[in-house]
Design a protein around this nucleic acid. Structure first.
Lengths: 250, 250
DNA sequence: GCAACTTCTGAGCAGCCTCTGAATGGGCGC
DNA sequence: GCGCCCATTCAGAGGCTGCTCAGAAGTTGC
């Protein structure tokens, strides 16, 4: 057991082809945000370092040789695109996930992402960042995970993350974006109670100021679509949270 | 027998990978609370130090290199989040359990717990703090305990802490939150008499002003659900307290 | 610029959980 | 065997949690 930190979630960790943990560099000038992000990525079992500006990002990248970089477009010294160019000359294999404000230059981003990279607009949810990063790494051939791929299965409930498609017992279940992310989080942690606070932290954007009440509401939406008329898979644990498990499961 | 203090509980201690005791730093400006907490953690067989403010917390952490930190969000000099960031830069592997007032939760805790970290709202029970801390350490790869994981077993009674599920002889036993915590405390100390005062101190919140009578009441609830119609596992020791043991036991 | 959808707030309701008080039962010392 | 005290159980009040509905505001796509 030489992994620095075993994975919290139920699924096996996504690791590099040689079995060592995925290495990620987080570049953002907001230390709080960088902290939260690196926490979430470490929780995935990945090795994480952070940088607060473009210059130290390049330095760190040279040393760490990361598999992926989470890169804020707006940096105090340069912009993310310049950093990207430098990174690619140093280490052409690296994947990049851009963080950008919603109304920022979408077209330039679009041009960049043609090369296999991806982006997420602020404010984002951690679930989204992690999922995108997993997608990038998987596509980059980093898919030495023990589970079979971009498909999540709990009982007869199946989620295809890439196609954003969910079926239960073969029947298509149509979900809104938030419903989808909530279900993904539940399905990535089957048979484990998740508190409303945990769900809120993970599925809702980090700047969401609302109450845990929304979680109850969305659980109720999910139940109507996922459990509708069937044996329920989503269970309430009073005073603790929610969990999902296969119907046959015990 | 070179452990600094022999363990109170019946289970083998959760130790570090090299066999030395887990090291925990407790940071709270209320000395009484810090004392109670560190007592409970020492009872687990862990090495504990305390700090009363952010500055000394950082100093202590540098010296002790703790595996986990129990950290009050409200500190006299800074808030816990600033301390967290400093801690993580000094010692990225450290787990943090936040202590926070109930109504302060929503605003700023959000996001922080996204990683491996967790929090507990005041007023809490010691059993809850210890359980959360054990969960954190286990997930952080500190799981060099002799028992197999997040499953507690006494005879045919099995408790899955992650799923918050209890079965007896394979049959599901549904418990309320307090019942669950009481049973967990009993099961973590099998074949050992626990006094009502001990139980009260451990399972109920530290600000509970009520009488020991509630313990009797909840034992009676538990018996109805756990022992119902079966050979009893929960026993009364008149004048001393209660204990749980396997039916075949002895 | 309109329509459909999505997200979130607030309020009401139902059921559960917790604790108090009191009555009953049972063990142990004397 | 008697009485006392400890333990058990019942019944019920009150508070709290979680679920649902309805509607407002914002967003997206056409």
């Amino acid at each position: 057991m030489n992994t620095p930190r075993s994975r919290g979630a139920g699924l096996p960790a996504l690791t590099r082809p040689d079995g060592t943990p995925v290495r990620v560099l987080v570049v953002d000038d907001d230390p709080d945000l960088a902290e939260v992000l690196s926490g979430a990525l470490r929780y995935e079992g990945w090795e994480v370092r952070t940088a607060g500006d473009g210059a130290s990002a390049v330095t760190e990248a040279r040393e760490l040789m990361p598999d992926a970089v989470v890169l804020d477009v707006m940096l105090p010294d340069t912009d993310g695109f310049a950093v990207l160019r430098t990174l690619h000359t140093v280490h052409p294999e690296v994947c990049v996930l851009f963080l950008t404000a919603r109304d920022a230059v979408e077209d330039r981003i679009a041009g960049i992402t043609a090369g296999g990279d991806d982006y997420v607009t602020k404010p984002f949810s951690l679930e989204e960042v992690v999922a995108r990063l997993r997608g990038l790494l998987r596509r980059a051939g980093m898919a030495r995970q023990l589970d079979e791929g971009p498909r999540l299965t709990v009982g007869d409930l199946v989620m295809d993350e890439e196609a954003r498609e969910v079926t239960r017992g073969g029947e298509l279940v149509e979900l809104s974006p938030t419903e989808f992310e909530l279900l993904r989080f539940l399905m990535r942690n089957p048979r484990r109670v998740l508190s409303k606070a945990q769900i809120l932290d993970r599925v809702w954007s980090y700047d969401f100021g609302g109450q845990a009440h929304v979680v109850e509401l969305y659980i109720s939406y999910l139940r109507k679509k996922v459990d509708a008329g069937r044996e329920p898979m989503i269970h309430t644990v009073r005073g603790a949270g929610y969990l999902i498990k296969p119907v046959t499961g015990r």
